[in-house]
């Protein structure tokens, strides 16, 4: 690092420190005097970090825009990627969609037995009801395994626990929803900025959650019907049939729109296969998550630098 850069860095740090102090000072007359000193210091530190983050973004913007070397635009293949779905999660999704496809193919004809295609599916393709119901039960076991697996995943895996925490709906999701509507209706210039999971993704997740509970619960009653009451059987059958249709339509219309037919990803988003998002995709779809990642990385680098310098000091 040459001296000029070093000086500029130091100066920038100084300015940020002064600016933080100025902000805190400006707020001083309005702060409740009973507020503990540490609380104010904590907030001040946050302000500093935020200013550092913003200035980093501005710096990288300047560099990428005016540097003579432009690797990012000229070699997009080398764009940095981020893991969105881990190997475990992708495996869950694969087992799930294989099960669900079989369940739909063997289940839907029984909801619409009067259609010629239904009879064709069951009698010609699967070779009779005996086979199709067996396949339905095998696929059902697959789905139950996914359910148990996922519950284990969100309980015991670090990434699962974190993601489940982030999946829980919060008030800002409602705000984001209305923000999106306003944006669609042209009342706002841009959509809301999402974190790791947008309200749409949360909806998808919880819809599947509800669907799994209803389908597995009612399906088990239908499977082991002899143990239950006929009235409960009737309810389970109706719920199984209706929720099955709802889930199928939601998958075909909503999920396929998002991951297949949406002009942005058409013909298919490959995240389910490789689990990766490119930097620009991440920045575009999950800007808050992106900011968090960048911030955390920067902090880590700083921490390492600090450690190095303290190590050097103690050595000397």
């Amino acid at each position: 690092m040459d001296e000029r850069t070093h000086n500029a860095q130091a100066k920038r740090e100084q300015i940020i420190e002064d600016l933080t102090k100025a902000i805190v000072d400006a707020a001083q007359p309005h702060i409740d005097p009973s507020t503990p000193r540490e609380e104010i210091d904590k907030r001040a530190k946050e302000i500093t970090e935020r200013l550092q983050f913003e200035s980093n973004i501005a710096l990288s913007e300047l560099v990428t825009r005016f540097s003579r070397i432009k690797p990012a635009t000229e070699q997009p293949a080398q764009e940095r990627t981020y893991i969105r779905f881990g190997r475990n999660f992708r495996a869950q999704h694969m087992l799930m969609f294989m099960s669900v496809i079989l369940l739909i193919l063997t289940g839907m004809p029984l909801k619409f037995p009067e259609f010629g295609i239904s009879k064709f599916m069951i009698v010609t393709v699967f070779g009779g009801l005996q086979n199709s119901t067996l396949i339905h039960r095998i696929a059902a076991v697959g789905l139950i395994i996914v359910g148990v697996w996922h519950v284990g995943y969100i309980a015991f895996s670090r990434m699962g626990r974190r993601d489940f925490w982030l999946m829980i709906p919060r008030p800002h999701d409602a705000k984001d929803f209305f923000h999106t509507l306003m944006y669609y209706l042209g009342r706002k210039p841009s959509g809301p900025k999402f974190g790791r999971f947008s309200f749409i993704e949360k909806f998808d997740y919880w819809a599947v959650y509800w669907g799994m509970v209803v389908m597995i619960g009612s399906g088990l009653i239908l499977w082991f019907k002899e143990m239950f009451n006929k009235g409960l059987f009737d309810i389970a059958r109706e719920a199984h049939s209706d929720e099955g249709l709802l889930a199928t339509l939601a998958i075909i219309i909503w999920h396929f729109y998002n991951v297949h037919f949406n002009p942005e990803v058409f013909p298919m988003s490959w995240v389910w296969w490789n689990g990766k998002l490119t930097e620009s995709q991440l920045k575009h779809h999950h800007p808050l998550e992106y900011a968090e990642i960048i911030n955390a990385e920067r902090k880590e680098v700083e921490l390492r630098a600090e450690k190095q310098s303290t190590g050097a000091e103690s050595e000397s």
Binding site: K225, E226, F228, N229, K230, G231, F233, D234, I235, E238
Partner: peptide, 22 residues
């Protein structure tokens, strides 16, 4: 088949109000 399985109402029409909860 258990007693409660067999003794329920058969020929249930889910679109008929008389069928109750279904």
């Amino acid at each position: 088949a258990s007693v409660q399985f067999a003794s329920g109402k058969i020929h249930v029409d889910p679109h008929n109000k008389e069928s109750g909860l279904v």
